[in-house]
Simulated scan of single mutants.
Amino acid sequence: MNRLVLWNVDLTLVDVTIVTREAYADAFRQVTGRPLVKLAPAMGRADSEIIFETLAINGIVTSDEHLPKFIDALAGAFSGRRRRLDKDGRVMPGAKEALKAVSRLEGVVQSVLTGTIKSNAIHKLRAFGLDAFVDFEVGGYGEEVYPKATLLQVAQGRVKRMYGFTCDGSNTVLIGDSTRDVQTARIAGASMIAVASGRSTATELREAGANIVLEDLTNPSEVVAAVARLTTPMDRKAG
């Protein structure tokens, strides 16, 4: 049985908020020549969306050149701080054990579906030894200017090309912490395991339509059972 499991990164697997904010401030200054006054909230959104809103709320009239310049600056600013990630950030409880346990499922491919740009997503997971369990080449990232649900379908297409199996709603699971992640899965027709480790409560995640809601990732057997349940053809009941 072939399965695709896509993980959100921030507040699902890691929390590196302090370093991310500093990198954004650095990149903003590089691109605009001005200090950053206000950073747009993340709330499960892509870096491309956050960048445009941050420029707007700080009074910058955007052009076609702003996004690629900001992405390049953000990648450089974050990379320069990568050695601080394990000091000023943290791996979310149970994340490494959950990734490792899911990786043992028959036919599973694990990657990420994240608002973070690809280079920064790799730094975030590598800092905590999580990179060994995911294939970054088939993921979806914040520099790709697509709605997140479309990005999930893009990731499915990449798996088809690289691994040779078709991904659809019967064998694709998204694991994330926000109601926006839930909406992404529902629009794309994938199953959703929501983890109440971010800013959305368990109740909000259930009401948004998550198939299964976990309080955290500290029970790897529970995570594996949830993935197996949602990718087994005869058993796809909501939890």
Rank of each mutant, 00 (worst) to 15 (best):
F165W: 04
P41N: 03
P68Q: 14
M1E: 11
M92W: 00
L152W: 03
R158K: 15
L205S: 03
P41Y: 01
R83L: 12
L151A: 12
V134T: 11
P41R: 09
A98G: 06
V227E: 00
K118D: 05
E204N: 01
E53A: 10
T114G: 08
N171G: 00
V159F: 04
Q110R: 12
R81I: 03
S170D: 11
Y146S: 08
S63T: 15
A42V: 14
E97C: 09
L217R: 01
D86Y: 08
Y24C: 07
D177W: 00
G94W: 03
E97F: 05
V31Q: 08
Y141Q: 06
Q110S: 06
G239Y: 01
L99N: 04
V5G: 10
G198P: 07
V227F: 00
N219C: 06
A42M: 13
A73N: 10
A196G: 07
Y24E: 09
L205H: 05
S48E: 10
G129A: 02
E207H: 06
P233K: 13
A210Q: 09
G89Y: 01
G107I: 06
K124D: 03
H123Y: 13
S200H: 10
I18G: 08
G164I: 00
Q156P: 09
V182E: 01
A77G: 08
A226H: 00
V195T: 01
R236C: 13
G189C: 02
G80M: 08
D15M: 02
M43H: 13
I57C: 11
